[in-house]
């Protein structure tokens, strides 16, 4: 699924902003470097942006800029980019497998769009599904997503680790938990089936999301 792009010129026109504003926001890191996609056109070099992302971001900046300084705004936006809504088609297949999307994604959609954080949680679920032997059961996945949606916002960007503990006796059972620092020593019958740093996962997620082929 290809991302829809918008040229810089069209963007300025559509949002009613100036070059000066756009460059200032870039300086203040309100617009990530990865969103600037350079392409050669018949009029020379032009810069394009992923349309959905940039329009949402600039709308957000414009609505907030009267209340907050740009530096305060930069701090707000670095969080799990609450302003961004992603279209389901943008995610499906490219970032989250169709199976996971069908299982859990449908109920998170709001008129065909997914909040940035929710898309990230689905990405984590997808990763776990692939890593765990025999995958996750539907119920485990639901538990995981519930945990992420409840807890990650509360952590306020503090680094944490997602850990899956597994025991085979008396029957296969898994416990999913979020760990905020410190090592974990399980007893012998319990193994760590998977472990993932949420920060690193977020980086991978963003690089996949902004990647443009």
């Amino acid at each position: 699924m290809e991302q829809e792009l918008i040229s810089k010129k069209e963007l300025l026109e559509e949002m009613g902003i100036s070059y000066g504003q756009l460059y200032r926001w870039k300086r203040k890191r309100l617009i990530p470097e990865e969103w600037f996609i350079r392409k050669s056109t018949f009029t020379g070099q032009e810069t394009f942006f992923p349309k959905g992302l940039i329009v949402a971001r600039i709308g957000h900046i414009l609505s907030m800029k009267d209340d907050l300084s740009l530096d305060e705004l930069a701090g707000k936006l670095s969080a799990l980019q609450s302003d961004i809504q992603l279209r389901a088609e943008e995610i499906q297949g490219r970032i989250v497998s169709s199976a996971i999307m069908d299982r859990y994604g449908r109920q998170m959609l709001h008129d065909g769009r997914l909040a940035f954080a929710h898309a990230f949680y689905l990405f984590v679920a997808d990763w776990l599904h692939r890593v765990l032997p025999n995958g996750m059961t539907e119920e485990e996945g639901a538990r995981l997503l519930h945990l992420l949606t409840e807890r990650i916002p509360q952590l306020e960007e503090r680094p944490c680790q997602l850990v899956v503990l597994q025991t085979a006796r008396p029957q296969l059972e898994r416990v999913i938990l979020l760990l905020e620092g410190g090592p974990l020593y399980p007893e012998e019958s319990v193994v760590i089936a998977a472990s993932l740093s949420i920060d690193e996962a977020a980086e991978v997620f963003k690089s996949k999301l902004y990647a443009y082929e």
Binding site: K9, S18, Y19, T43, G44, Q45
Partner: peptide, 22 residues
Amino acid sequence: SKLIEGDDVSLEATSAGVVRGR
């Protein structure tokens, strides 16, 4: 410069590919 973009642009003795501005 290859590209110069700004709101108010005033240039002298410049070679540029594209200049965009208000």
